[in-house]
Amino acid sequence: MSETRFQRMKDLPSTHLLGAGTAMCAGCGALQALQTIYDVLGERTVFVNAAGCMTLLSVYPFTPFRGSWLYTAMACAPAGAQGVRDALDILIAKGRIPPGEDLSVVTLTGDGAANGMGLSSTSGAIERGLDFLYICYDNEGYGNTGQQTSGATPHGARTATSGAPHGHAGFKKDLFSIWTAHRPAYAATVIGAEPLDLARKVEKAASLRGPRFIHVLAPCPTGWDFEPSEMIDVGRLAVRTGIWPLKEYENGQVVHTRTPHPRAPVEEYLRLQGRFRHLFEPEPDAETLGSIQQRVDDYWEAAG
């Protein structure tokens, strides 16, 4: 990544393109990451949005965007992106707008849509080689309806539809692998708590063409039940425990951009969050904790 303009924290913009005043929760990890993403992408973008928390970014007559925005529905944001991309290409090809009027098409979607309803339209868009950047802000549940279990909910987490004593029985879907199985132009995992890594990856994604994927883990004080002030701490621990591996895919290769060494025990990350409280109280649930740790250990062992 030697060509990056982001060599150190100080290189990150400290005045931001995205307007304040949105309805996102205080301490929103998705919004915090989006600040830097938008700074890097800039306003020559059209954000095509699927139903989710961020649908409320633009509420008539208010929008934080300097660039463009289109709300579609929950299932079909990539299809909306397709229509915008095709129309722009047609207009340019026919000389009805100058090339300078072109926009980058960005899909903005939560994990609920990305892992569920929106997956088929996403797969179709990648398969068609659509030139778009797909951003999934992942707060590991249907956050905007009160944190019900989604395809991204991790094992053991309590949600509005996964109760005690053990929390969610299933496992977080590996959306990154689903994407890379499609052999896209680029895919990366990021987190707002590691802004340099995030900025570099968004910068690289923006420089490429074709289907590109930025998967943002978005610590959610409301849905995960922690104090808003701890959002960055939660995010850093997601990386330090190895639960959220930072990596990127390009030309058929997956490379880890950060290898936590030594890895902190997963309990440090889980303990901060009310959604995992039942794993510690009234008695520690050693079995579930052990299996979460084991999965992380297995992942990194396989990653070499």
Partner: peptide
């Protein structure tokens, strides 16, 4: 400024931060 979710930490050209209290939600990050 980077860690503020709301872009409510402003900076002077010299890099001195100040809080935009019109928009700061008090998350204390």
């Amino acid at each position: 400024s980077t860690f503020c979710p709301d872009g409510a930490v402003l900076a002077t050209p010299e890099g001195v931060p100040r809080i935009d209290y019109d928009h700061c939600k008090g998350c204390m990050i």
